[in-house]
Design a protein around this nucleic acid. Structure first.
Lengths: 260, 260
DNA sequence: TCTCATTTGTCCGTATGTATA
DNA sequence: ATATACATACGGACAAATGAG
C-alpha cells in the first residue's frame, strides 16, 4: 500500500487543493484581472517567470494558463516582446437583441413542434463528429418536425440529441410547447451558458425527405445548435433541415454598450 | 549514455531540422494518416507512449501534436480510454465566427476582398425590395469577391449597396482591408447601431456564376446584412452568395450574467 | 462492488533555440 | 552584440478516469 520513494513529495505540496486544475484557476484569475483593469489595454502581462513566482507554479502550468487567454483573444504573445493585452473581455458578449437564448434563432410562434419519434441510440460515424464524442456513445434522440398551421409542407425536420439521463423530458405534459433545452435546465439545474450555431447549405437526407415533402438530395439550410454548460460540455445538440424556400433565418444585433 | 547533457537527449540529434517545430510535424503526419484511413473512424490512435517511441519524442511534444488534432475536431481524448477518431477531415470548409457587431462584418484575415467593379445604379424591382426603397432610388454598388489565399474558388460574391454620398470610400488606400461599414462610420460620423442579418438557401445568379467558379442555378447560402443607424435608416446593405460547401456561418453566444 | 492495469490529465524541473528590443 | 522573454523540447511523477475482470 505504501508506495513512496518518488523523491518528489516534499517539493510537491498540495498539488491541487480544489477540484479545479491549477492552470485553469490561474487563467481565470488573469482574465479577471484584465477585465478589472489591472493590466490595461496595450500593456504587457507579467512575464512567465514572474507569474511562476507569484503563483508558485511551473512554466508549463503558467503557459497552459496563458493559452486560455490566447484562445479567448485577450492577449498575444511574442518571443522577446512579452504578452500584450489586446482585449479586456472576451469578445462574445451576447450581442443579440434577444435577452434569452430562447430567441437566438427564432421560429415564429405559430410554428408548432410535432414529435415523430424518440429513441436511445449509439452515435454512428457522422453523429460522432457532430456530437464530438467517440462512435458508439449513447445518446437520446428525438425526431420532430415544425409546421405552420395546417400547411402540409413542414418548415423543418429537427433531431434533438440529449444526454441519456435527460430522456425523461419527453414525459412532460407541455413538452411540445417549451424549448427542450429549457426543460433540461429545469430538470438538471445545469445552465446553458453558451450556444454555438452553425448554418450552411446541405442536402435533404433521403430517410426524412418524404415526411418533409421535399425531394431527397434537394438543397437545404442545415442548422446545428450546440447548447453548452459552463465547462463547454454539450447539454443538447440539435440538427435541423430546412428545405429550400421555407425558412429564412433572421438575426438582429445591437451595438454593444460596454458597461458592467 | 554517459553523456547526459540536460535538455538534449542522445536520441535527438537535430532538434528542429529547419523551419517547422517537431510537434507540428507530428501533428501533420497524424492528420494525414487519419485522412488516408490508417486510423479508421471510431478506432483509437496509438497511445501517447507508443507515439513517443515511434517519433522519438517526449510525451509533451506528442501531446502538443495531439492538441492540433483536437482543435481540428479529428479526435477526442479521454483518460483511461484513449484517443478516438471522430472525423477523417477537418469539419468546416470555412467558418465565419460572428462574435459581436464589429466582427459580424469582417471575415477572418485570410479571406481577402477583391473588388470587381463599382458603379452608381438605380434600384430595380428586386433591389427595391432588398433595400426597402422605391424603385429608381439611386445607390452606389460595389461588387467584390472574397478569396482564401490563392484558392481559385472564391468564398463568396458580395454586393455592397451604399448611399451615393459614401461612394468615395473606394478611393481609400487601404480600402480593401477595412470593413466598408467602418469606413462609412469614419467618413460620416454616423454610427452603425444595429445589424439585421438574414440567411436562406438560394441559387447562384447566372451573371456571377462564372467568376464564382460555380454553376448558375446551383444551391447557395444567401446572406443579407443591413447596417442601420440609430434611426433604423440603412447605411449599408450587403448581399452575399456562398456556393455550396464553401462556407459555414458560425455564431457564438454567451450568457451575460457572470456567476462567480 | 471491487480491484487493477491502462491511458490520459496535470504538474514539476531543466535546457536551448529564436525573436525582440 | 547583449539581455530579455517566449517557443520548443527533453525528462519524471502522480492523479484521475476508464474499462476489464
Amino acid at each position: 500500500m505504501t508506495k513512496l520513494v518518488p523523491g518528489q513529495s516534499a517539493v510537491t505540496a498540495p498539488r491541487t487543493p480544489r477540484g479545479q486544475p491549477l492552470y485553469q484557476r490561474i487563467g481565470e484569475i488573469l482574465c479577471a484581472r484584465i477585465a478589472a483593469g489591472d493590466y490595461p489595454l496595450g500593456t504587457n502581462l507579467p512575464t512567465e517567470a514572474e507569474l511562476c513566482i507569484e503563483f508558485s507554479a511551473s512554466h508549463h502550468t503558467v503557459r497552459d494558463a496563458l493559452k486560455i487567454l490566447i484562445e479567448k483573444g485577450l492577449i498575444v504573445r511574442r518571443a522577446g516582446s512579452g504578452s500584450s493585452v489586446i482585449a479586456l473581455t472576451e469578445a462574445t458578449v451576447f450581442a443579440h437583441v434577444a435577452v434569452d437564448l430562447h430567441q437566438l434563432v427564432s421560429y415564429p410562434e405559430i410554428a408548432k413542434r410535432e414529435n415523430i419519434s424518440s429513441e436511445h441510440i449509439a452515435a454512428n460515424a457522422e453523429e460522432a463528429r457532430l456530437l464530438q464524442c467517440p462512435p458508439g456513445t449513447p445518446w437520446f434522440r428525438i425526431s420532430a418536425i415544425r409546421r405552420v398551421g395546417s400547411n402540409p409542407e413542414p418548415l423543418c425536420w429537427t433531431y434533438f440529441y440529449l444526454l441519456p439521463r435527460y430522456a425523461r423530458v419527453i414525459k412532460n405534459k407541455d413538452h411540445l410547447d417549451i424549448p427542450v433545452y429549457e426543460q433540461i435546465e429545469k430538470m438538471s439545474g445545469e445552465r446553458v451558458e453558451r450556444a454555438k450555431i452553425e448554418m450552411f447549405v446541405g442536402r435533404i437526407p433521403s430517410n426524412i425527405a418524404k415526411q418533409l415533402h421535399a425531394a431527397a438530395g434537394s438543397p437545404s439550410l442545415v442548422t446545428i445548435r450546440r447548447y453548452l454548460d459552463g465547462a463547454d460540455r454539450p447539454l443538447q445538440v440539435t440538427v435541423s433541415y430546412h428545405p429550400e424556400g421555407r425558412y429564412t433565418s433572421t438575426l438582429d444585433f445591437k451595438r454593444e454598450t460596454r458597461s458592467r
